[in-house]
């Protein structure tokens, strides 16, 4: 079957390692090969983009150029921030001659080819378009015994390019999960800000944004959330104890990567999906994935 050049980015090597594990496991089950991009570097997101846009484009451009050199021009970037910066770089290089020149010069100075011709892909859209809900439906091995899930898409994946899903009302994660037998709830905050890096800078504002999303998901009947971005997952997962303390509300909701849930439904080993790495809602995690081998620490 198909193969992708894989750009994990820094998050999937750090806090988002469960995303990396579950994505690899799931794609393996589906017969999709991943070959990691050699010598990849920072995608250029976060502080780079804010401080020196030009350098951010160069960094991002280098990754695109490496992918082009590699030959497989389908570049899979699971992190929403990586995805967005790579797409933005392509867009700006195409649109603004000055940026194209700066990036082009930097690339040629390092003996790299121009960055064009690469197609940046995201797992959500690959699973939806290339695999399809029908194949997911047919590949289901386990019956879901957990609660309803609120699919949270975050801000970066659907805007501004809207190539992964509709910008205002994305539904593809919902469709994939439902195809795997996992019920989802509709709620209005699925593309609202998770707080992003605010949790590290203006902490109370960032955490409040997390709280709003989690609370609304629960209000709409969700017992868990599913995400497509390592920063969203991290934010929503790790501050729940703090939220409980400051609001007095009993909020303890597991926050998964959508690849973890799909992988489990398709029969993969929970360990291989990084399911033991959840911080919040462990009781539910234990209950839902209650197979002997699920050893939840702590």
């Amino acid at each position: 079957m198909s193969a992708f050049t894989y750009f994990p980015g820094c998050s999937l090597r750090g806090t988002g390692v469960a995303y990396d594990e579950s994505l690899r496991t799931l794609l393996k089950v589906l017969g999709i090969a991943l070959e990691e991009l050699d010598d990849w570097n920072c995608c250029g997101a976060t502080s780079y983009m804010a401080i020196d846009e030009g350098s951010a484009f160069v960094l991002s451009g280098r990754n695109l150029s490496l992918a082009r050199e590699k030959g497989n021009h389908e570049l899979l970037a699971p992190c929403a921030a990586c995805y967005l910066v790579l797409r933005k770089t392509q867009d700006y290089v195409g649109r603004y001659p000055a940026i194209a020149e700066q990036v082009g010069q930097a690339l040629s100075a390092s003996g790299l080819p121009p960055l064009d011709g690469v197609r940046v892909r995201h797992p959500l859209e690959v699973l939806y378009n290339d695999v399809g809900t029908e194949r997911i439906r047919k590949s289901v091995k386990r019956k879901w015994a957990g609660g309803k899930v609120a699919c949270y898409y975050g801000c970066q994946l659907v805007r501004p390019f809207a190539e992964v899903d509709r910008a205002h009302d994305p539904t593809r994660m919902d469709e994939l999960l439902r195809a795997a037998g996992i019920p989802t709830v509709d709620y209005a905050l699925k593309t609202k800000c998770c707080g992003g890096s605010l949790t590290g800078t203006i902490h109370d504002v960032g955490v409040r944004l997390n709280y709003i999303i989690l609370k609304e998901a629960v209000r709409k009947g969700a017992a868990a959330l599913a995400t497509v971005c390592p920063l969203c997952q991290h934010n929503l997962d790790v501050y729940q104890r703090e939220i409980r303390r400051s609001t007095g509300e009993k909020l303890d909701v597991p926050v998964f990567y959508f690849t973890q849930l799909l992988g489990w439904a398709l029969g993969s080993d929970p360990d291989a999906l990084g399911l033991k790495r959840q911080v919040s809602g462990r009781r539910l995690v234990r209950e839902w994935f209650a197979e002997r081998e699920v050893a939840v620490h702590g």
């Binding site: 709620y187 209005a188 905050l189 709003i212 609304e216 209000r219």
Partner: peptide
């Protein structure tokens, strides 16, 4: 910005 049924 939006009309929503999200109750704070």
């Amino acid at each position: 910005a939006e009309v929503t049924d999200w109750a704070l």
